[in-house]
Computed example of a mutant assay.
Amino acid sequence: MRSSRSAVILTSLVAIAAVLAGCATPASPSGTGPNETAAPIVAEPDVVSGEGSTGFPGIAFPIPEDAKSVVITFECDGSDGFSVELGDSMALRQSPLGGTCGEPTDLAWPILPATGETLSVMVTGEAAWSATPTFSTEEFAYDRELEADCTAFAAVYSALTNADSGFGHYGAFDETEWRARVDAATQDLAALAAASHSGIRSELESMSATLASDRVAGQSMAGVDDALGRVTAACNANQTPLVISAEFGG
């Protein structure tokens, strides 16, 4: 493997945990992923298959030398959730991608010089699965407006998470400080939603409206789970996952 695992905190791991508990990752509100017109560089892709989870770093997954992006068509038996990771997503600040078994799902990643040639799969029990890659010499087509919104929202999400953690778990400040922090983050979120032109604008607006209503101290994001899940899924599919900056804890 060409890269090592790091301690970068990615909210995609929360989404993957929900998938493996039986909840499908919500579909991205905007079309993201490699250019659909990109010419594949392997006429007959090698299918990688197995039964049950592979663990990390996974199994060998050779990548052609000139590949710059890949779409993996993933299938697995049953109807439970699955997660797939190319190389070491955390080190690359990319995201594992998930879905629900039972029908083929296309999963897309950019390929960087540091991308490890391994594939990690998480499924329930001993479910049989297969992964069919289509590599391309074309770059992964990031949605740049969505990327900007994901980056900006990650800062808001970090502020809210730190407010809840600092007040409720660490006792670092009182409720007055908690409310001041949440007020500031809520204003930032409202400004972000108003300026957004990406596919997650409606989710940002929804969360902004919820955060502006009555609050329970230490639970700033109560009631936004569905919208947050859709934002997380969209950012993950665009391979611009939400990276949280933790103010408290090691």
Rank of each mutant, 00 (worst) to 15 (best):
L20K: 13
D77S: 07
S120G: 14
I72T: 03
E36H: 02
D149F: 06
A155I: 07
E75L: 00
G168H: 07
S83M: 08
S3Q: 13
G229E: 06
S95Q: 09
N238P: 03
S89M: 11
L92T: 07
G171Q: 06
G98W: 00
V48T: 14
K68Q: 05
P45N: 10
V121Q: 12
G229V: 06
A128W: 03
L97N: 02
W109S: 07
T115Q: 05
E65W: 00
D88G: 06
A159H: 10
R201D: 02
Y170K: 01
E117W: 00
L242Q: 04
T186S: 10
A131P: 15
M90Y: 09
L242D: 04
F167D: 02
V47A: 09
T37A: 15
I9D: 15
N238I: 03
A131N: 15
S120F: 12
A60K: 00
G58N: 12
L189K: 12
A21S: 13
E205N: 08
P64H: 04
G87W: 06
E138H: 06
T32G: 04
S130R: 05
A217H: 06
E51C: 01
T25Q: 14
L10S: 09
I9A: 13
G223H: 03
S69A: 10
A237C: 08
V42E: 15
E75A: 01
L242R: 02
T232C: 05
A128Y: 06
G31H: 04
A67W: 02
T132V: 14
D149K: 08
S165T: 12
A212C: 07
P110F: 07
P29W: 07
A39W: 02
A91S: 15
F61S: 13
D188R: 15
L192V: 10
I63D: 04
P29L: 09
V156H: 15
F56K: 10
P26V: 05
F135Y: 11
S89C: 09
T100F: 01
R215A: 13
S95G: 07
E117K: 01
I200D: 00
E103I: 00
A38K: 11
F82W: 05
R215N: 08
G250M: 12
V70M: 04
N238M: 03
S213W: 03
I244K: 14
H169W: 13
I111M: 11
G58P: 13
A39P: 00
G116R: 10
S206H: 10
D226F: 02
A194Y: 03
A193L: 06
I16A: 15
T25H: 03
S220Y: 02
S4P: 06
W178I: 06
M122V: 02
G33Q: 11
V84P: 10
S220R: 04
A127K: 02
F248Y: 15
F153V: 10
S198W: 12
V8R: 07
A114C: 05
G52M: 07
S130Q: 15
D46C: 09
W129A: 08
E205F: 11
E139S: 10
T115K: 11
G58C: 04
V48W: 08
H197T: 14
A128N: 08
A127Q: 05
